[in-house]
Amino acid sequence: MTLDSILASMFPDGHDVKNDSGVLLGSGTLRSGGRALVIGVADRAALGVDEAVKLSGYVLASLKSGSGPILVIVDSDSQRMSKRDELLGLNEFLAHLAKSLIHADIQGRPTIGLLYGHSAAGAFLATALATRMLVGLPGADPAVMDLPSMSKVTKLPIEVLEEKAKSTPVFAPGLQNLAQLGAVHVTWDDTVSLADQLEKLLRNMPDARDRRDALGHERGGRVKAADIAGRVRELALQTR
């Protein structure tokens, strides 16, 4: 789906989301009558220091007076790979954006990520993966690392990697793989109203606890994560 058709289907009662060179800022009217804050990255733009600070500033400003959920709509590149961004401390800017979203979520502004295109690496961590619920739309193609780059680092031919990817969702790109690991909670149907699906999600919003490792275990994508985290937690709780 295109960004315009997504926004139109999600907010039939109107929205004021603006796309400024790939940086999305605005809000939309919910079916329930309330409003949702909308931020995001569009047009497969890279997320650098300039973009990240605009997004975090918009989220923080809305915490002063606003209410309602926060939607994070994503079709991004990876983080902007440049000397300037690293010189200025890109890790702090991306972490700050993630922190702002996580803080908002914990403090009663539930966050929902909507992945409709690409995303990767640091940009993915600072946006979609920093939300409570991550929704995928058909056609989304997240990639922590693309197979050609993996091929270069692992020195394995792409065909060999593609073959290996059939037996495990753990490394290859794709929405289905990330869903199996517990990163993407639900995939929406793009042939029916997104507003209805959003309303249903908001009505059944789980509490803010991070259950992605348990979800990954249930779906068979991550066999050890939930068990290891749970055992370390138990042992650590005995510390006095």
């Binding site: 922590v144 753990v170 994560a225």
Partner: peptide, 23 residues
């Protein structure tokens, strides 16, 4: 950063760690 051979699991672990640090 992320271990490429298990890139999706590593990326997700980092997301969970960031959330857990803030919590």
């Amino acid at each position: 950063g992320v271990r490429l051979q298990e890139a999706n699991a590593g990326e997700l672990a980092i997301a969970e760690i960031m959330r857990a640090v803030i919590e």
